[in-house]
Design a protein around this nucleic acid. Structure first.
Lengths: 214, 214
DNA sequence: TAGATTGTTAATCGATTAACAATC
DNA sequence: TAGATTGTTAATCGATTAACAATC
């Protein structure tokens, strides 16, 4: 029988990493069992919502008991694709690029940084941890000889789109974008953006939110 | 007459910085007029949605004409609270902290970095641009003598919550959080989180999304 | 005036919450 | 078995889309 799983909504998908984080924490605390009610209280969601979310992927709980932390965590890990390995390059070896390479958590989850690229002569040839910075001129050759799954983009805004175009041209299908810019990519390329400017402006809104009529 | 503006939903608020970005771009291109239809096409929204969003704050357009880019941009700028000035400290002077201090865009919008704090002896006393790194021991005194509106948090995960508690204790009411952790704060403190780990895991999900039944 | 496009109300769609039978 | 809690259906709520009168 063919399965016809309805495409899961982005709203649910965006909550998955949070579930994974909380379940990892629970496991670190050696808690073996959790109910949707307990998890809801921890995460600020409702029990119903959690059960709905999880059930869009399958039945991971046990009636009358709850969810086994380890089992559920592993299930979500797999749903997130974290059972796989990813080769990754970083374009833009500024402070942000450095910060990401040094992020221990990524390595733990099978994200392998293969190279950094920049145009600044002072940066070329340097090593950040065990990752070498190459010149952008060497990008094509490098990607041709390595299977690269993800490109992390932390270049100046004005070259954001052109760099994206180049990366897409080279066949990379996933971009983690730190440039405060909405990138245009073909349908078969996925982009996830971290927009620090947007976050800051949301914060300034919230700071003043209640001032008008309270 | 008293105004009873219904509280604007977070869904709409999260789109405001995007409107602001697009309107800024339009103004830079010297485009004076835009219709909801044109803006919708650019932003990947519907014209209806844009008109609904904007009208939750007031009537900024002209029937039969559209929106004056400059006027609308200024209106949103004000809604976002970017007509005000904000004093800001950064706790954690690692690469991420450095990246943020060097972010030109923030200064343009009235965000002033007053100091950085760290516990690493090698960092104390250094200057990043014109911002000095102080020891965390000096935090209380500094905040007591400066009106600090925003704290940017880029400390190691394991001290994320305790640092937050300390900052809250000192009376700071807004936190831009880069620690991959859901911070607990009192109701009168606003937190906006940038969670790079969550974004990466969303990306790995999307990479594998269509693999199961297609 | 005629054409265009807003502001706003009504209809639809999707997400959350509630309820409860299934079952561990 | 009785109690607990899931999986899942139904009800509600909120967000998006459609429609159109107001009006520039």
């Amino acid at each position: 029988m063919q399965t016809f799983s309805k495409r899961v909504s982005m709203t649910v998908v965006k909550r998955l990493p949070k579930y994974y984080q909380y379940l990892t924490d629970l496991q670190d605390q050696h808690i073996e069992k959790i109910s949707s009610k307990e998890l809801a209280a921890m995460m600020g969601l409702t029990a119903s919502q959690i059960r709905q979310d999880l059930n869009s992927f399958g039945a991971y709980g046990q009636q009358g008991y709850g969810y086994k932390v380890k089992e559920l965590k592993e299930a979500i890990r797999k749903i997130l694709g974290l059972d796989l390995q990813y080769n990754c390059i970083i374009i833009g070896s500024g402070n942000l690029g450095h910060a990401i390479v040094n992020y221990e958590r990524f390595k733990e989850e099978g994200i392998h940084f293969k190279a950094m690229f920049d145009v600044d002569p002072d940066q070329i040839g340097k090593k950040v941890g065990n990752v070498t910075v190459y010149h952008m001129d060497d990008l094509d050759a490098f990607v041709a000889h390595h299977k690269i799954d993800i490109c992390i983009l932390s270049v100046p805004q004005k070259v954001g789109q052109e760099t994206t175009d180049r990366v897409v041209e080279l066949g990379i299908k996933a971009i983690l974008n730190f440039v405060p810019l909405d990138l245009t990519v073909p349908d078969d390329v996925v982009v996830e953006s971290v927009n620090i400017t947007d976050s800051l402006f949301t914060l300034t809104y919230l700071i003043n939110e209640d001032d008008d009529d309270e």
